[in-house]
C-alpha cells in the first residue's frame, strides 16, 4: 500500500525529511503501526516514536493513532501546534 508521509516543525528537523512516499508492508493498517514501522528504521527514526504528544493527520484531518490507513492517504506527523 502506497501512502505519502509528511513531517512538520521540530519533527521535520529531527528526521531531516519533510515528505516521503512510502510503500507500507501488508499488515500495517493503522496510523500507530505505521509510526512504529517508520521509527524502527534506524537513526534518526526512533525520534518519531519518542516524540512527546505526537499529533497525526490523515488526509489533512486530525485523527488518533488508531485511525485506519488506506492506499493513497496523506499522513502527517507533527508536534502540538503553536500558532496564534
Amino acid at each position: 500500500m502506497k501512502v505519502k508521509v509528511l513531517f512538520f516543525a521540530g519533527l521535520r528537523e529531527a528526521l531531516g525529511v519533510a515528505a516521503e512516499a512510502v510503500d507500507v508492508p501488508a499488515g500495517i493498517v493503522q496510523v500507530g503501526a505505521l509510526r512504529d514501522w517508520l521509527a524502527a528504521r534506524g537513526e534518526p527514526w526512533p525520534a518519531l516514536a519518542t516524540a512527546k504528544n505526537l499529533r497525526v493527520a490523515v488526509n489533512q484531518h486530525m485523527v488518533g493513532l488508531d485511525a485506519p490507513l488506506n492506499s493513497g492517504d496523506e499522513i502527517a506527523f507533527f508536534p502540538p501546534v503553536t500558532g496564534g
Binding site: F8, A9, G10, A57, M62, A76, F78, P79, P80, V81, T82, G83, G84
Partner: peptide, 14 residues
C-alpha cells in the same frame, strides 16, 4: 475561534 485556532490549526512557531 482564537481558542480553537491555538490548538487545532497546524501552525508552528520557531
Amino acid at each position: 475561534i482564537m481558542d480553537y485556532l491555538k490548538t487545532r490549526a497546524p501552525f508552528w512557531k520557531k
